[in-house]
Design a protein around this nucleic acid. Structure first.
Lengths: 324, 324
DNA sequence: CACAATATGTCAACCGATTGACACACCGTC
DNA sequence: GACGGTGTGTCAATCGGTTGACATATTGTG
């Protein structure tokens, strides 16, 4: 049994294909009787208009590509969940791409998205900017990442959040506060604002800095080894700011193994993290608002509104204190 | 600047459209010189073949729909990440749908997927079976869910896992072991195997049962209230089997607030959970294997192989012990 | 009764690629 | 010189639906 098409519906309903199309698209004059006949035929035959054909003619696919490192990390997971919900509500469909923080994969996926004529892209992966974004003239929104001069950015207040976290550790009387960073090296070089917030806050308070970079693109065991090593080399660390919650959790369990209990503050504050981990404080990013805003901006751009070009939208974070 | 099309490439390269198509699809005779000319033109113009047009002609979209409740829960997140990776590797694209465990949303998304001519579907949402799956003749694979008599199922050993978990709690000398269930009511009625494993194991050991159903479709605060209530009503519970890790985490923190420390075993064992939560044991489902198998089956079916129809693939689980 | 609004049909172009049929030219070889 | 392989072009149909132009018929209204 092949796919049902418009023509079959027309025959079944005893009308012309044009009439069916008119019913489907609410154009021209249609009597209630005919409308009913057609809708009944559609129902009866289980007809679904072929979006591929429609897209081809209309040169709009209502497809949005979503590029993230993965959806395993609950912060990304919640972000993608919310983005998809918002898009779906507005009649858009979500093409999911996991870049695994790998530049080639991002490029490959990007080409795929362009071939598939997506109307827009939300990019949250953390690779180096690709010039493909510039060439293709489609709507793009970046989440906490620079893509090109024109692409609007939605991010949380990384600097403010880092200050909050570090200040919190200071109020907890921590004497030696370390930062564990899980960002790509390039990002750090370009001035990681979470790092800067940490450094500035410590300097203001005459504290020394202790930086441990945990390559986020290495595998988990390697990361854990690195953390362990660093903690052995700096046994008197009593405060930790981790730039991600997963990282914070790993640090916590490694510390526990070493019979230590430093005060830890993470970053992200996904619902999942908050449910699973009751004893690590964190800086919470407003995921739902960020997702909502990104979609709004994207659809705005799609509607031909250029006011977001080059804009950066920084949403406020909140510190969530937890006690053991 | 409009989109570049095959015709433009042809003009730019000084050849006919047919020749360009021949180069793109490796058909017929093409001299190396011409091939180079065409490829250079493609490169120069930044041409991406319009997949929409290709799909229309070829009546194959290489699009796979993925239906899950969400990707916020790291178990789903990791599953979806892995499925997407596997699909992408085989040249397929992933249309992500979040059903929020809502039947109407699932139906709506399903219609959308059919309209978009997806070649297949992987469904992991936990709603009642819809007859749409039967009608549409496309490849479908279900993850831990019944869809229809024909649709193959990939799941972990729910019964064995529950037995493992319960037996573990018994070895820990727990006297009063409760189960907290986060599945939809209908699923439980139809014989939830995690529940059955729990019950059977207790019966074998002459233990009484203590069941708390936490509607997974209620909001988090309501769930927490329910857990709290149940624990107050049954203060001597010293062992808990939770049918999901998030649930286990919530139980843990609520217990802590009440100054209790029951032995807890969760279910899922996502990497994220294991990283974040060092002190809750769990039954680990082999996410990567399940994802891989699902994709393999799907592509097999797509290739016209019917051997998977009606099959159920049950993958083994492992108990992961954690200590406080 | 004329005219407008309503209701439906026919027909063809179009969206961007693929594909088969067929023509023509060039080359080498038997 | 004929034939087969190679290389390229022209042309039209096709995928499934959309849309505008135009024809025609039936209403209703002033």
């Amino acid at each position: 049994m092949g796919k049902v098409k418009l023509e079959n519906v027309a025959k079944f309903a005893g009308v012309s294909p044009t009439t069916v199309s008119r019913v489907l698209n609410n154009r021209g004059y249609i009597s209630d009787a005919t409308r009913k006949k057609v809708n009944d035929a559609i129902e009866e035959l289980g007809y679904f208009p072929n979006e591929v054909a429609r897209s081809l003619y209309g040169s709009k696919t209502n497809l949005i590509g979503i590029l993230f490192p993965n959806v395993s990390n609950p912060f990304y997971g919640e972000m993608v969940t919310e983005i998809e919900k918002n898009l779906s509500q507005k009649g858009y469909k979500t093409l999911l791409c996991n870049t695994s923080d790998n530049e080639e994969k991002e490029t490959e996926h990007l080409k795929m998205l362009l071939s598939n004529q997506v109307d827009g892209i939300v990019v949250g992966s953390r690779n180096q900017p690709s010039d493909i974004y510039e060439k293709a003239n489609l709507a793009v929104v970046a989440i906490d990442r620079f893509v090109s001069a024109k692409v609007p950015i939605v991010r949380s207040d990384n600097y403010g959040g880092a200050c909050l976290a570090t200040r919190y550790l200071l109020t907890k009387k921590c004497k030696k506060i370390a930062i564990f960073i899980g960002s790509p090296e390039e990002e750090i070089k370009k001035g990681d604002l979470r790092l800067k917030g940490y450094l500035d806050t410590l300097t203001e308070n005459n504290h020394g800095e202790h930086i441990c970079r945990v390559s986020f693109d290495e595998n988990e065991n390697y990361q854990k080894a690195k953390i362990s090593e660093y903690m052995d080399a700096n046994p008197d660390i009593d405060g930790v700011f981790a730039t991600g919650d997963i990282l914070a959790g790993m640090i916590k369990s490694i510390a526990r193994q070493k019979n230590k209990n430093p005060e830890i503050v993470g970053y992200d504050g996904s619902d999942t993290f908050l449910s699973l981990c009751g004893d690590i404080s964190t800086v919470r990013q407003p995921v739902k608002k960020m997702a909502r805003l990104s979609v709004d901006i994207l659809l705005d751009s799609l509607a031909g509104n250029y006011e977001h070009e080059g804009q950066e939208y920084i949403l406020p974070v909140t510190l969530i204190e937890r006690s053991v």
